[in-house]
Design a protein around this nucleic acid. Structure first.
Lengths: 197, 197
DNA sequence: ATAAAATTTGATTGTATGATCAAAATAAAT
DNA sequence: ATTTATTTTGATCATACAATCAAATTTTAT
């Protein structure tokens, strides 16, 4: 029976999480410190310790915040579509669109995923991309659905989901200048269509 | 006009680099320290400072070592093939095979790429995946070659290379237990064939 | 053999920073 | 109004660690 955190606590936590995202985007995981986060959030360092158990706790909450945001965005768009193929295209489209509009979020996500570790010291990048990852589950559900409705041909659902997720993730690492997200999206949709149809 | 480093220096450097790879694989970038590397290499901390200008220098040399190793391995295999299609399949095969046999190398590579930054504070993951990356150049050369010989159909070379590299990179993040590299390889080859033929 | 150069050690120093805490400020309850 | 609980501050403490360096050891040159 844990009592609900007060509104102040909830607001402060979100404020600190948002400051953490900004700081991660600007200076990266390695250089981030409670002092830097505090400065960004315009609060004292002690306040962060008051609302979070430790630095790791701040970053874990930030990770959940980022993943939830991204997942909700994509899921909502996909839910608007009916056929498996439309859902698949929308999944890709929304995933890439999120990257375009939430650049700082993506950078922060990368910084945390490739640095934070579970209590038993397993890096997140080794666990997250799996059955536990809701995005993977969503993508696999779409692929499975399409196979059942005969919209898609036969293929290994899990492995194809890894291919598609990989193609999406890779584009997150491209620097903006010489990379055109729009043409990439079109090419990816064309290629995925060839794969599943 | 810099004088060649002595054999002892070269050997020590390699010893320290190999210890760094092991340490990165075991404890990750965040927790690595000169003391940990020294212990792995069974030398004193001071010796690392003697052979490298600073900690960052150690990690930069380790990164070059890892990238060179991987590239040489893949390039050599590809060079044995004549047709563009065979080269492409070999590229994929060798890339995934390298992962299977050089697991610690891959982990170390990920740890550095997602943490180390250039002197002007740009993270490597934002710059590496680009025209400068020899692996990308190799893959794009193969794709271009196949288009010229009419083995492949028409597509955007650069974007397709990103898709393929993404699919390869994603599999690096899969944990061994429930992931079968061999079946993934087969599925990826099938899908890439659909894409380019 | 002796001297000079290169290599190696391990203790020391300085710095950065996560965490703590007493005191102050603010808000909520009576 | 007054008390109590909550929130916030900023200075202080403890720790980890990169970097330095004088001294010791080993290698190379003469």
């Amino acid at each position: 029976m844990e009592k609900q955190p007060s509104f102040i606590t909830q607001a402060r936590r979100e404020q600190i999480i948002k400051a953490t995202i900004e700081a991660l985007d600007e200076i990266g995981y390695k250089k981030i410190s409670l002092a830097k986060i505090a400065k960004k959030a315009k609060v004292s360092t002690g306040l962060i310790s008051y609302h979070f158990s430790d630095k790791e706790d701040v970053l874990n909450h930030t990770l959940v915040y980022l993943l939830t945001n991204q997942y909700d965005f994509i899921k909502e768009k996909v839910a608007e579509r009916k056929s498996a193929y439309d859902q698949l295209i929308t999944f890709i489209d929304a995933s890439l669109a999120y990257q375009g509009t939430h650049h700082a979020h993506n950078v922060a996500l990368i910084e945390i995923i490739f640095n934070a570790r579970t209590p038993d010291n397993i890096p997140y990048y080794k666990v997250a991309e799996d059955e536990e990852d809701p995005l993977y589950v969503l993508l696999q559900t779409i692929l499975q659905y399409g196979k059942e409705t005969k919209e898609f041909s036969t293929f290994d659902t899990k492995n194809v989901s890894i291919i598609i997720q990989g193609a999406i993730a890779e584009s997150m690492l491209m620097n903006q200048e010489d990379f055109n997200l729009e043409t990439y999206k079109n090419e990816l949709i064309t290629m995925v269509t060839k794969m599943v149809k």
